[in-house]
């Protein structure tokens, strides 16, 4: 992806997104009372204004793409092995979804310990023993601070409860 193609990609996305907002999202998900006298005071006015501005910026980005000279400089972030990098991204997404799902079941401390280990494995840490020790100590230390100092009710889960 070059700077020029990025302009086009963003411009088209912004225009499509603005169209989606105007045609579907705003009429569907923004409710307004039927007796609003002036459009300016309606709850719909601001979202429609933002949609219009999104479209305007999208069009300007496309115009920018049309007028930009191709410099050939590739903007892609380097990665030695692209399929492996994509797999790691997918793995991290799975870890995040699993965390949200497991937090009420296992509790925050145990879920975070598992997530720490999983993410350290994912990024191929060179210090597995330190990672394991940190995986236990960091969530416990944070639990002690938030639960006992800040008085936050940290979710304990349904299995092992901490003092």
């Amino acid at each position: 992806m070059t700077s020029k193609s990025l302009q086009l990609r963003l411009g088209v996305t912004a225009c499509v997104f603005a169209l989606f907002l105007v045609v579907f999202a705003i009429p569907q998900f923004v409710s307004a009372p039927s007796n609003v006298g002036k459009i300016i005071l309606s709850p719909l006015f601001w979202p429609y204004t933002i949609a219009g501005l999104t479209c305007l910026i999208g069009l300007l980005l496309i115009l920018g793409w049309w007028r930009t000279v191709e410099d050939g400089v590739v903007l892609e972030e380097p990665s030695e092995n692209r399929p492996a990098a994509i797999a790691r991204l997918f793995g991290l997404a799975v870890i995040m979804i699993a965390m949200v799902w497991l937090l009420p079941v296992l509790g925050m401390v145990w879920t975070c310990m598992l997530a720490f280990v999983a993410s350290a494995v994912l990024v191929q840490t060179r210090h597995p023993k330190i990672a394991l020790i940190c995986a236990v100590l960091v969530p416990l230390a944070l639990y002690v601070f938030f639960a006992h100092v800040a008085g936050v009710a940290i979710p304990q889960g349904e299995f092992v409860r901490l003092p």
């Binding site: 925050m108 720490f116 350290a120 990024v123 840490t125 060179r126 210090h127 990672a131 960091v138």
Partner: peptide, 12 residues
């Protein structure tokens, strides 16, 4: 590669 998992936990 240990700091970032710790940051993840801290964020949560």
């Amino acid at each position: 590669r240990i700091l970032m998992p710790a940051v993840l936990v801290l964020c949560v």
